[in-house]
Amino acid sequence: MFTVGQLVQPDTVEEAYRILTEKKDAAVLGGCAFLRMGSRAIGTAIDLSHLNLEGITEHADSFEIGAMTTFRMLETDSVLNTFFDGLLAEAVKPIIGVQFRHAVTVGATVFSKYGFSDLITALQALDTEVELAHGGRMALEAFLNRPYEKDVLTRLWIRKDGRRAAYQSFRNSASDFPILTTAVSLLAGQGRIVVGARPLKAAIAVQASQELGRMDLNSQRMDEIAALAAGEMTFGANMRGSAEYRRELCKVLVKRAVTEVAACK
């Protein structure tokens, strides 16, 4: 059972970070879907409600997404979803249900670097930056690759660079965790192919991405790109699928996503 000793609702990000690092057993509260499943005894719970971190703001060249933004907001935001072919909405739509997506948050998800994450897969296909209370702003890729360090994720920044994108996930039961996820984006000769739920955390298929940017796409080349992606990624096994099956799925999903992106032009 999840327990909280003391609750704090700091008024500044700095204070939130200070409490998180100074207090023993302190934790930031997101939407709590994951926290409540554990039996963590949280000494000091940090609630970010007073920091105005809930919501999506459009700027001239970017979107700012607060850490407490819920998945349902991503799904239904009418402005955000006119960009990137609605990539983020597509990514979060299969997750459990409306009432669940009204609860879970962007900040917690990205900070936790879940391997199965649909959202992280999609965000990685975009030019996404993570803003941390202490760590500052950095590319999502850099954040995912750096070792764990206590911090508060405050915002995501996504550049409105006009890239086209497509999302594919594969699940058995429609509301299960994905067996594999893929997001593909393309902008002016720059391609990006991300594969997640391997079940390791999402990563960019570097060679395949390069090929995607370079090539004039036809069916055969798409097959080659998909095979390249499947070949260069590492896959593992869990209850939902073997590594071997995931590799095969990777070919199919990448091909489908690439086909979609190519059709967008």
Binding site: S173, A174, S175, D176, M239
Partner: peptide
């Protein structure tokens, strides 16, 4: 198509929630 009670090699149940044991939605 979906439901499967599964245990690990030591006999511990893996499918112990609606998250891991999927009834049809």
């Amino acid at each position: 198509l979906y439901e499967d009670v599964r245990v690990d090699s030591k006999g511990k149940l893996l499918s112990n929630s609606f998250m891991q044991y999927k009834i049809p939605c």
